[in-house]
Design a protein around this nucleic acid. Structure first.
Lengths: 218, 218
DNA sequence: GCCTGTGAAGCTATTCACAGCT
DNA sequence: AGCTGTGAATAGCTTCACAGGC
């Protein structure tokens, strides 16, 4: 299977979500420009992306919604369920657990970790909370391949080390630090502060253009 | 003032945070490769970034920490405080409010909005919660320029419209939809599902390379 | 006519590599 | 020797534009 470029993976994930909604509306086909409008992209971009994963449409009907979803599923998720472990059950951690419960059945948060005595031993969103010292053991035993770091910056590296020791292959990192991990572990940073500061910058200096033009009319 | 490219803005925000920690450690100067190591970037990248904002170092001592922080401050934040409004006081909304309280004094969440009767009229993290129907009025009255959308996807567009009507110039969007806004409003998407799916993809297919190599040794 | 698939062009971002300074 | 500043080269990503098909 060919390597899919990072940006493309992101868009495919977005396309899939949009297509899921279309299925609910009994829509069976759509054209590249439809998907472009719905995803805030361009028709050429959509065609290029689908080309990368080798999906074929027909000029007459466009792309088949069901078939496309299925292909994206196999490209991105693979066949089996991927168990996920999350460290840090604060507001953010809880939000993440809630967000994911049931949303993508193939990506399942199966264990949470926190050292707050009020949380250990209980369940949050159907997910058992263990002590942080148990990370390595549980990750290994449950064959968890993906870790979520939702702890303060000060302890993020320590937590990442534990996850890696347990054998995770990917980390979703909410802490605003550059984690050091072995090469074969993929880190995806999701940094709220950085995003907020980007918005602030563009809100302050951005284009003072015509009020009525809209993003997706390109 | 020149336009700073989007990617660079992100890295500058990261550099600033790192430099802040260095100040606490009484470090007065650092070289491009130091900042590169701390931020998970490369020395050439750091030099290029600092060049774009016109900061000068000396080959002997490197870059002055305090001066650099100050320049990034003026480049990114501007002089006055930017008030922020947040819609959706669920776990995620609360996490965002907590995250930002006090962290960057120039970016202050001054108003929250939710329709849950248990929340309206109370304070969350020192921030008053209004009814969603009040968004436009409060945004206008408080001169809020930045909105945070932390509501479910179904109502995100409606909320964005209210924020825009009130006059925001930038939106930080946590909802997994492509918001349609006027051209002069900057939208920054922060999509957990997408990031998680990216991690899952790379965790599954990523390099099976040598266990011991580390990210930042380039 | 309007669509897809795609080579080629165009753009943006990153990295190289080296002159110049200390 | 080791650093910064930067033109030039490279790599990566997006858009153009058009052939081919219904």
């Amino acid at each position: 299977m060919a390597e899919i470029p990072e940006k493309t993976v992101g868009r495919l994930s977005l396309y899939r979500r949009i297509l899921g909604r279309l299925v609910a509306e009994r829509r069976s086909h759509l054209h590249s420009h439809d998907l472009a409008a719905l995803s805030g992209s361009t028709a050429a971009q959509v065609r290029r992306d689908l080309m990368t994963i080798g999906y074929q449409g027909s000029p007459a009907r466009g792309y088949d919604v069901q078939g496309l979803i299925q292909l994206i599923d196999t490209m991105l998720d693979g066949p089996e369920v991927q168990p996920i472990g999350l460290v840090g059950v604060g507001n953010l951690g809880r939000a993440v657990i809630t967000y994911f419960s049931g949303r993508r059945p193939n990506l399942k948060i199966v264990a949470a970790f926190d050292d707050d005595a009020d949380k250990v031993g209980r369940h949050v969103g159907g997910c058992p909370v263990h002590r942080v010292s148990e990370v390595e053991r549980v990750v290994r035993e449950e064959r968890i391949r993906i870790g979520v770091v939702a702890v303060p910056a000060e302890v993020a590296q320590k937590v990442a080390d534990l996850l890696v020791a347990g054998g995770v292959r990917g980390i979703l990192n909410f802490a605003p630090v550059a984690l050091r991990v072995p090469r074969n572990v993929h880190v995806e940073d999701l940094d709220m502060t950085m995003s907020m500061e980007k918005v602030a910058y563009y809100a302050r200096t951005g284009p003072v253009g015509d009020q009525e033009e809209r993003r997706d009319e390109r």
